[in-house]
Simulated assay, not measured.
Amino acid sequence: MSAEGMLSALVAFRSVVGTRNGALIDYIRDYLASYDIASAVISGPEGDRFNLFATIGPKNVPGYILSGHIDVVPANETGWASDPFRLRNVEDRLIGRGAVDMKGFVAAVLSSVPELAALELQQPIHIALSYDEEAGCRGVPHLIEKLPTLCAPPLGCIVGEPSGLKPVLRHKGKAAIRIKAEGVAGHSSRPDLGQNAIHALLPALKAVADEAANQEKSGPRDPHFAPPYSTLQIGVISGGEALNIIPSHAEAEFEARAVPGLDPLALLQGALAEVEASEALAAEVIASYPALSLDEDHPLAGLAAELSGQALVEAVSYGTEAGLFQAAGVPSIVCGPGDISRAHKPEEYITVDELNDAQAMVLRLGRRLAAGAASGETGRAL
Rank of each mutant, 00 (worst) to 15 (best):
S248R: 13
T231F: 09
V159L: 11
G186D: 01
S188K: 02
S189V: 02
H199G: 12
R221P: 10
A181P: 04
D192C: 05
K172S: 03
G183M: 13
P191F: 12
L169Q: 07
I179A: 08
L232M: 07
L169D: 00
E145Y: 09
S218H: 08
R170S: 14
C151I: 02
R190L: 14
A226W: 10
G186F: 04
K166Q: 13
P223Y: 08
A207F: 08
R190Q: 15
V184Y: 11
P167M: 01
R138C: 11
P191E: 07
Q195R: 10
H171R: 03
V208G: 08
V159H: 09
L143S: 00
C151K: 00
G240S: 00
Q233V: 14
A197I: 00
I179S: 12
N196Q: 08
P227C: 11
A204Q: 09
G194W: 08
G183N: 06
L243R: 15
R221F: 12
K217C: 07
Q195H: 13
L232Y: 07
P148W: 06
K180F: 07
P247W: 01
A204S: 14
P154F: 10
N214M: 12
P148D: 02
A176P: 11
S188D: 10
L147Y: 00
G186P: 04
L193D: 09
G139N: 02
A176N: 14
P203E: 04
T231Y: 04
D222G: 05
P247N: 05
V159P: 03
K172V: 07
K206L: 10
L155D: 12
K180S: 15
E253I: 04
G186T: 05
V168E: 09
R190I: 13
K174F: 11
L169I: 00
I158Q: 07
H187N: 05
P247Q: 06
G235P: 05
K217M: 12
Q215N: 02
G219I: 00
K180Q: 13
S163R: 01
L147K: 08
A242H: 07
A252W: 00
A252I: 01
A204D: 10
L155R: 01
K174D: 04
H224G: 14
T231L: 07
I179D: 06
R190E: 15
R138S: 12
H224V: 11
L150E: 05
R138H: 11
K166N: 14
E145G: 10
G173E: 00
R170K: 14
G219E: 03
R138M: 12
H249E: 11
V159W: 12
P153Q: 06
N214A: 15
R178S: 15
H199L: 09
E216W: 09
N244W: 06
G183E: 02
I234F: 03
Q215W: 00
A175R: 11
D210M: 09
P148E: 01
A207P: 07
N214Q: 15
A226N: 13
H199P: 02
L169A: 12
L193I: 10
R221D: 11
P227K: 09
D192A: 15
E145C: 04
I179G: 03
F254K: 01
A250P: 06
C157N: 12
A152F: 04
A200L: 10
V208W: 05
G156N: 09
G164R: 01
I234N: 08
I177M: 03
N214R: 15
P223Q: 11
A204I: 05
R170C: 09
L165N: 14
P148C: 05
A213R: 10
A204Y: 10
R178I: 02
R170H: 10
C151F: 03
E216M: 13
